[in-house]
């Protein structure tokens, strides 16, 4: 008996362990090597004990090493065989993990609601509250109090759906401005989202029913600069931090001065593209300083309080943002269309 013989014994055992194909074969190997009586290594151990004392330390070390290697190999192989066995039995319960249960699929938010939520979120962050008003309005709130006189073209039956002599479907959410002013003293910071109606024959950019978000701020010392800053903040929050805005003079009966607001094109960064009709700017909303007469109608003293107001169309923003070419899609509710959002 030599240390080399013990090592050779271990090598043989390791090869047999590696060759065991299942736990039963492994057990046979174990018994053959480490069995209490007939195990080859066990017997070699007994022989070591019979050698003269001077040989024993070296032989003992070699024996312990050989036995350790075999035991580790047995444990490893056993674990491996068990895992293989488990895997084989689990395979019968195979689940294709890439299949999603369509029943549990989440529904899609309408693109206009997406935009409305974003707008609301931005203005809530600026300290605005959200107000609502009826969709069936009176002529007085929809027009008269907003400085749109009796014979103004906007009041033609051409543009407005009438229900009676005095009731109509609101043509904008601006009446909510007036209801808010009459309902609370300044300071006021409010947005009014909601459905509005115009007697337009539907085409890609005109719809008899659409949404509007109107905003109103009334306080002491409100300036055109405040209007500009507010809308710049909105434009950057909505369309990206690099956006610029420009105010173009325009005309609305309920504001003076009135301006149209353009935002630098978020597709081409102002270089000119299809979205902005090569202009580099996109018109996104109308705005202005609240007309003194409108303030008075709302019970606000224009010498003390000033205000600005703005109005925007979520459909238009949705069309721009999501590249919707025909806005009529927005009320068709084709699920193929809705599933894009």
């Amino acid at each position: 008996m030599t240390p080399e013989a013990l090592a050779a014994l271990a090598e043989d055992a390791l090869a047999a362990i590696a060759g065991a194909a299942d736990p039963d074969q492994l057990e046979v190997v174990r018994r053959r090597v480490l069995g209490r009586r007939e195990g080859a290594l066990t017997r070699a151990g007994a022989v070591v004990a019979t050698r003269p004392p001077p040989e024993r330390p070296a032989l003992g070390r070699a024996f312990n090493e050989a036995k350790g290697r075999v035991e580790v190999a047995l444990a490893r192989r056993s674990g491996q065989l068990q895992a293989d066995a488990l895997a084989r039995s689990a395979d019968g319960e195979w689940v294709d993990m890439t299949v999603l249960d369509t029943e549990a699929e989440r529904g899609r938010l309408h693109p206009v609601t997406r935009v409305l939520r974003e707008i609301e979120h931005i203005f809530r962050g600026l300290g605005y509250s959200v107000a609502e008003g009826p969709e069936v309005e009176t002529d007085r709130f929809n027009f008269e109090l907003l400085n749109i006189p009796e014979d103004h073209p906007a009041r033609d039956g051409q543009d407005t759906f009438y229900l009676s002599d005095t009731l109509l479907l609101r043509t904008h959410t601006s009446p909510v401005q007036m209801r808010t002013m009459l309902g609370q003293p300044p300071p006021i910071r409010v947005i009014a989202p909601g459905r509005t109606y115009r007697r337009d024959n539907p085409d890609p950019t005109h719809f008899p029913m659409f949404h509007q978000v109107e905003g109103l701020v009334v306080d002491e010392g409100i300036t055109v600069g405040d209007l500009k800053g507010t809308l710049l903040t909105f434009a950057r929050s909505m369309f990206g931090a690099r956006r610029e805005i420009r105010l173009r003079p325009n005309f609305f009966p309920y504001t003076e001065p009135s301006m149209e607001v353009d935002v630098s094109c978020f597709v081409c960064d102002g270089a000119g593209c299809r979205t902005c009709h090569q202009r580099g700017w996109i018109e996104i909303l109308g705005s202005g300083m609240v007309h003194p007469q409108v303030l008075r109608h709302g019970g606000v003293d224009p010498d003390r309080h000033q205000g600005f107001a703005f109005g925007m169309g979520p459909e238009r923003i949705a069309m721009l943002k999501y590249g919707i070419e025909d806005g009529r899609e927005l009320t068709v509710n084709d699920v193929r269309f809705l599933h894009q959002f």
Binding site: D226, K228, G229, L232, P249, P257, S258, P292
Partner: peptide, 27 residues
């Protein structure tokens, strides 16, 4: 009215000259 004159002056001087601010008052 004065607001109309304001519009004439504002658009003549150019709104691009107006600094962008946020209404920062106590509510």
């Amino acid at each position: 009215i004065a607001a109309d004159v304001l519009e004439e002056v504002g658009r003549s001087l150019g709104y691009d000259r107006v600094p962008a601010t946020l209404p920062g008052r106590r509510c």
